[in-house]
Design a protein around this nucleic acid. Structure first.
Length: 379
RNA sequence: UCCACAGUAGCUCAAUGGCAGAGCAAUCGGCUGUUAACCGAUGGGUUCCUGGUUCGAGUCCAGGCUGUGGAGCCA
């Protein structure tokens, strides 16, 4: 008895194998049962035919509910009709051992609302879409760390319990530290500015917290943030580094996760264009482009949203509009100093610049998405 | 914090102010190639909460709660 993983099913054509997993869906055809079976690595169709099994095992096969756990044994055969991930192969069952019959599993292979799904998050992670998202998330984290480790950056973890704010712009989560106030970290920046002077190029990657009841797709109270800090880096060095880094992450995901991106129905042609160098425009040019766009826009509501004076900061509609002007991510650099409230080094090549930059890309409607926990905190 | 929309069966949603409904899920029956199978049957309700208008409220009004989308703040 060879226990295999579904992702490797093609290697076992003609062989008898054992699969251990859960029933994803089942189609009852009387003397024939099609069981969509998942084991965490993929989904394979198992076919139970009455004449090829013991009467007891076939009776169980006909009663399996969604997400019941089962150990099955059968012969792998190639069949174009077989759905699954990877698909194209199915298992003709000879044995079936029930581990646990699932009772009243709430999530069906149909549409559900987000509220309901979040209430059942512990089960939602079993569905294909969440499966794909979390697998890609793991690769993104791996690729980010690999690139930094391979390019001379050293990981230094920074504290999660901190005595004060790192950036004074956002609200901190206050906690009781043996009678003294302490806060959940909102950034590792201050610690790694110190570590940077010891090691040259460092980064931290961990959970950060913002006690804001904000309500946009760019805000979360708890998220994982990667923060590199580098000594003697110019603004151009920063943009060079960031575009190399992002390109590596995106291209790694494309190379490893075609099946998952397919499940997510993602247009990969957009991701394929995420290759350094990215577009770069100055703050001045961004403002000019927005003013031109606002002048040409017919829709009065959109026209109002796109209004932009030099010296102001960009709002969500501005970010989206600029990002949509380019096929690739775009840097906006040389912000006016007065538009940035947090600490930025003055950039000598542009006296009025704060040396700040942001990188925006299409689709995510704004800044690059941060990594999120598998069980995101909601307000 | 502001604006808009929503809350009805386990889920997704219907229902001119006039008998509370469908599909899926569950249970039972049928079928050897299903792809969210199909066909037949059965069970399933504090219509978010409180109050009001009305002969009569899921539906109209007031307040509240919860959620979704957008804005602001911000990363």
């Amino acid at each position: 008895m060879t226990v295999i993983q579904i992702k490797d099913i093609a290697q076992y054509e003609g062989q008898e194998v054992t699969l251990r997993g859960w029933v994803y869906n089942r189609t009852d055809k009387g003397r024939l049962q099609f069981i969509q079976f998942r084991d965490g690595t993929g989904i394979a169709q198992c076919v139970a035919f009455k004449k090829e099994m013991s009467p007891e095992a076939f009776e169980i096969a006909g009663k399996l509910t969604q997400e019941s756990s089962v150990i099955v044994t059968g012969t792998v055969r190639k069949d174009e009709r077989a759905p699954g991930i990877p698909g194209g192969y199915e298992v003709g069952l000879s044995k079936l051992e029930l581990v646990q019959m699932a009772d009243e599993y709430p999530i069906t292979p149909k549409d559900h609302g987000v509220e309901f799904l979040m209430d059942n998050r512990h089960l939602w992670v079993r569905s294909t879409r969440q499966w794909a998202i979390l697998r890609i998330r793991a690769t993104i984290i791996n690729a980010m760390r690999n690139w930094l480790d391979d390019n001379g950056y050293m990981l230094v973890d920074t504290p999660i319990l901190t005595p004060s704010a790192g950036e004074d712009t956002t609200t901190l989560f206050k906690i009781d530290y043996f009678g003294e106030p302490a806060f959940l970290a909102q950034t590792g920046q201050l610690y790694n500015e110190a570590n940077m002077a010891a090691f040259g190029k460092v980064y931290c990657f961990g959970p950060t917290f913002r006690a804001e009841k904000s309500k946009t797709r760019r805000h979360l109270m708890e998220f994982w943030m990667l923060e590199p800090e580098m000594a003697f880096f110019s603004l151009e060095d920063l943009m060079d580094m960031e575009e190399q880094f992002i390109s590596h992450v995106v291209q790694t995901v494309l190379a490893k996760h075609r099946a998952e991106l397919d499940i997510l129905e993602r247009d990969t042609s957009k991701l394929e264009k995420v290759v350094a160098p990215f577009a770069r425009i100055s703050y001045d040019e961004a403002v000019e482009r927005l003013q031109k766009l606002a002048a040409e826009t017919e829709d009065p509501e959109q026209k109002e949203l796109l209004q932009m004076e030099w010296g102001g900061d960009f709002g969500s509609p501005h970010e989206t509009a600029i990002a949509e002007m380019f096929d690739q991510p775009v840097f906006v650099y040389n912000y006016p100093r007065r538009s940035r409230r947090f600490t930025c080094n003055r950039w000598k090549a542009a006296p009025k610049s704060a040396g700040a930059w942001t990188c925006w890309r299409r689709r995510a409607t704004g800044r690059l998405p941060a990594a999120v926990s598998a069980f995101p905190t909601r307000r």
